[in-house]
Simulated scan of single mutants.
Amino acid sequence: MGFVGICTADVQFWSEGKFADMVVKKPIVLGHEASGTVVKVSCGVNHLKAGDKVAIEPVVPRENDEFVRIGRYNLSPTCFQAGFPPDDGAMCRFYTHKANYCYKLPECVCLEEGALVEPLCVALHACQRGRVKVGQKIFICGAGPIGLLCLLVCKAIGVTMTVVCDLCQDRLEKAKCLGATVVLKVDKCTCPMELAQKVKNSLCAMPDICLECTSSDTCIQAGVYAVKPGGVVVLVGMGLATSNVPVTHVTVREVDIRGSYRCTNMWHTAIALMASKKVDVKPLITHRMPLEQGQEAFECVKKGAGIKVLLNCEAQQQCPSLCPQQQCGQQQSQCQTRQCPQHSFF
C-alpha cells in the first residue's frame, strides 16, 4: 500500500463503532480511499504488472444482480465494500483486491493523488446526480474534502458561480483559494431561512442546485429554501438517520431531493481529470502521517484539523540519521549502499 485517506466514516467507525446504519460487530481494518503499488498479479491479469501504481476502487460487486446490470453497482446490497463492515479495508502494508477494480495511474499522478481518486469520484457522482451543467449557479454546503472536491468539479464543468458555506473560517479560506465565488461563515445557531437568503443575496439570484455535503439539518433545510423553483438538492453527506425537511416548500416549488451514495463508473474520468490538471487535488492534502501514527492521525481528523489527512502505509522506516538530501527518510548508510528507493544514484 502507498497512501490511504482518512474519511469521516472511518473516524465514526473508530470512535463510535458505527456510521449511519452500518455497525461494527467484529474487528475490522478500515480504509477505503487508497492507492498502492502492484507487487504481484494472479494468472489472467493482463492490464497490470508488478511496479504499476494504482488507485483502488473499494466497492466491488459480488453478484451480477439487477443493479450491476444497469450500471449502478454502488446500490447493490451484496457489494464488497472495503473498510465498511464486515469487509476489511486498506490501512495496512499489503492488501489484496480484485484486479478489475484497480486502476493504473499515469506517471504524472502520484500515489498521494491516487488516494484522492475515490473522494473525487464521490464528488463527480454527486455532480452527475445533480445534473450540474455549464453556466449554472451552485450552492455547496460544507468545505470539507468532499465539498471542496465538488467545488473543483463544478469549476471543471464550467459552473458560473459557486457559494460555499461552512462553520470553519480556515476551510472557507481554502474554498476561496480554490475558486469559490462567495464563501459564507455559518454557526450552529444559524437560521436556515437566513442562510438561504444570504445565498440568494450573494448570487443576486437563486442557485440552480445545492450540493449538501454536511448532513446537517440546517444545511439541508437551507438548500431547500435557497434553490430556485424546479431546482435540485443533492444529499451527499451522510451521518444523520433522519432529518427535518420543509416538505411544503419541496412540494409547491417542485424541488427535487436526490440521494448520492458513493460512486459508479467514475474512475477513468477522475484519473483523466487529475492527469490533465483540470482538477488539482494536492492543495487539499494537509497532513501526511506514517501508519504507526494512525491513532494520532484519526485524532487529527476527529478534531477537524486540516482538510485531508493521509496515512503513509509504505514500509519505510523514519530514522534520525537521514540521507544527505534529507528528503527520503532513509538511513544514510542505506542511501550510500544504493538501498534507498528515492536516492538509488548514491
Rank of each mutant, 00 (worst) to 15 (best):
F94Q: 13
T78H: 13
A99R: 01
H97C: 06
Q81V: 14
P106G: 09
L105R: 06
S76I: 02
P119F: 01
T96V: 13
A115Q: 00
I70F: 00
D65C: 08
Q81D: 11
L75Q: 01
G114C: 03
N100H: 12
I140W: 01
F139W: 00
P77I: 04
L149E: 03
F67P: 10
K137L: 14
H97L: 08
G142F: 03
G114H: 05
C92H: 00
L116V: 02
V60M: 00
C92N: 14
C102W: 00
G142H: 06
R131F: 02
V60I: 14
F84D: 01
C141I: 03
A55T: 09
V122R: 07
P85V: 05
L151N: 08
Q128Y: 03
L120W: 01
C165D: 12
R69C: 06
G89L: 02
C102G: 05
P77V: 08
I140G: 06
R69V: 13
R131W: 04
V134T: 09
L120E: 01
N64K: 15
E113S: 07
P61C: 11
L151E: 04
K155H: 06
R93T: 11
E107W: 06
P119R: 07
H125Y: 09
G130H: 14
L148C: 01
L75R: 09
I56H: 09
T96I: 12
I140C: 04
G135L: 00
L124N: 07
F139M: 12
H125M: 01
I56K: 02
D87E: 14
A143P: 13
C141P: 11
V59A: 09
P145W: 04
V163G: 02
C127M: 08
F94Y: 15
E63Y: 13
G158Y: 04
E63V: 14
Q136D: 05
L149M: 14
